[in-house]
Design a protein around this nucleic acid. Structure first.
Length: 433
DNA sequence: ATTCATGATTACTC
DNA sequence: GAGTAATCATGAAT
């Protein structure tokens, strides 16, 4: 309404568009009038403008009728051209038309991020760099794949929502643009709207919609960031080791109870076998030592279980050794490291690996170790026949290795039960401290 | 919902 | 830097 008022005021008598006007407007004489009745023309224009001004106060039917009347009015082309001139002079139609803003850096950032995360652009493997990095840093490979697929599933959900919304926005934008263009084209019959102006309007609409799109992109980015942070947190989350891994660790622990400090090499080997990291092995042993020490009684059962297991393995080993000694020539007793003892899942398997500290289970030690295994077997058999509780002093796993301060003393006098791989009096070489 | 088990973290010591 | 002890945080069992 302001604009109308302004135009009206302008038309009322102000010098228009540089025309020299006296006492009003100098409109071209419509329909061949010679311009003699100047007052009548003024009256006409005033009427028309009044009609325009009051058109909004009328009912739709009335307005339609008025509109039709105006469209057919003899003064319409003249008024139209004047309005065009005014618009041109006031720069309304041009202003901002050349406002071709450069690409928004933030939008570019968002686009790049969405592209990098695999949300925008062609569908790829899923989590892309994030998942790969997380997979590389995480511990168990099986857990990785679980988390990885989780991450990928969530990411693809985000991707789907993003694309659906984007499509919706684009559709809405197109619909709205078409609608506005039609409206403007329609209106251009009654008011001066240049194609340039329509173009400008379209660009305004597009800008508005792109700002909405930016919000969508921002939200999507946030969602991806949250997902990523959750995913990264998930890596920190505690996840129980597999049963097999725990068994391997426990077997090592109880078979080295006198000195449960695996060497770096042993840790690496354990880590490999358990599909966990070396630091997880360290954590596990740290926790295990302290918890075992704190509550030996509680671990008795577990200790017995693994002792029995070890004993069975020892029995197998002894049997194999006996068989071996029978079949082999006495001149070549158990000389090969590969053919020495088959002790799957026993402490022996750790000892058979290369150990710079001489804790290996090969060569001349073999005989002693067989003896130790036999001892273990005997001991376990005798113990299982009548097991007493730890305080009774006849428990299989008394903290022999621990000193009065609660720490593990040097394993100079390890129980024969403790490790089938240790000969009596053998000193653990994985004493890292 | 509670309790227990357990992997991880942190502060500290040696 | 490795280990200890305390603690946190979460999964699983009840």
């Amino acid at each position: 309404m302001d604009e109308q008022a302004r135009i009206m005021q302008t038309l009322g008598g102000v010098n228009l568009a540089g025309h020299s006007v006296q006492g009003g407007m100098a409109l071209p004489p419509p329909h061949g009038h010679d311009g003699t009745d100047g007052d009548g023309r003024k009256q006409d224009i005033g009427d028309i403008l009044h009609q325009i001004m009051t058109i909004t106060d009328q009912s739709l039917d009335e307005a339609q009728a008025k509109k039709h009347g105006l469209n057919c009015h003899r003064m319409k082309p003249a008024l139209f051209s004047v309005l065009c001139e005014i618009k041109e002079k006031t720069g309304l139609s041009i202003r901002g038309a050349q406002e071709e803003d450069p690409p928004d850096p933030q939008l570019m950032r968002l686009d790049n991020m969405l592209l990098a995360e695999g949300v925008a652009g062609p569908e790829k493997g899923g989590g892309s760099a994030a998942a790969a990095a997380a997979a590389a840093a995480s511990g168990s490979p099986t857990d990785n794949s679980i988390e990885h697929s989780d991450y990928r599933a969530k990411l693809s959900q985000i991707r789907q929502i993003y694309h659906t919304e984007l499509e919706k926005y684009e559709q809405a934008c197109n619909e709205f643009t078409t609608h506005v263009m039609n409206l403007l084209r329609e209106q251009s019959r009654t008011r001066p709207i240049s194609p340039k102006e329509i173009e400008r309007m379209v660009s305004i609409i597009h800008r508005k919609f792109s700002s909405i799109q930016m919000q969508l992109k921002q939200s999507t980015c946030e969602a991806v960031m949250i997902l990523r942070s959750r995913f990264l947190d998930a890596r920190r989350k505690r996840r129980n080791f597999s049963k097999q891994a725990t068994e391997i660790l426990n077997e090592y622990f109880y078979s080295h109870l006198s000195n449960p400090y695996p060497s770096e090499e042993a840790k690496e080997e354990l880590a490999k076998k358990c599909s966990i990291t070396v630091s997880q092995v360290s954590n596990w042993f740290g926790n295990k030592r302290i918890r075992y020490k704190k509550n030996i009684g509680k671990f008795q059962e577990e200790a017995n279980l693994y002792a029995a297991k070890t004993a069975v393995n020892a029995a197998h080993a002894v049997a194999a050794a006996v068989q071996n000694s029978q079949t082999n020539s006495p001149t070549t007793p158990n000389s090969g490291s590969s053919g020495s003892f088959n002790l799957p899942n026993s402490g022996d398997m750790y000892m058979s690996m290369p150990n710079p500290n001489g804790d290996s289970y090969q060569g001349p030690q073999v005989g002693a170790n067989v003896q130790s295994q036999v001892d273990t077997l005997r001991h376990v058999i005798s113990q299982t026949a009548g097991y007493n509780d730890a305080l009774g002093g006849s428990s299989m796993y008394s903290p022999h290795g621990m000193n009065a301060n609660g720490g593990w003393q040097d394993a100079t006098t390890p129980s024969s039960v403790i490790s089938p791989t240790e000969g009596p009096g053998s000193v653990h070489s994985d004493t890292s401290n």
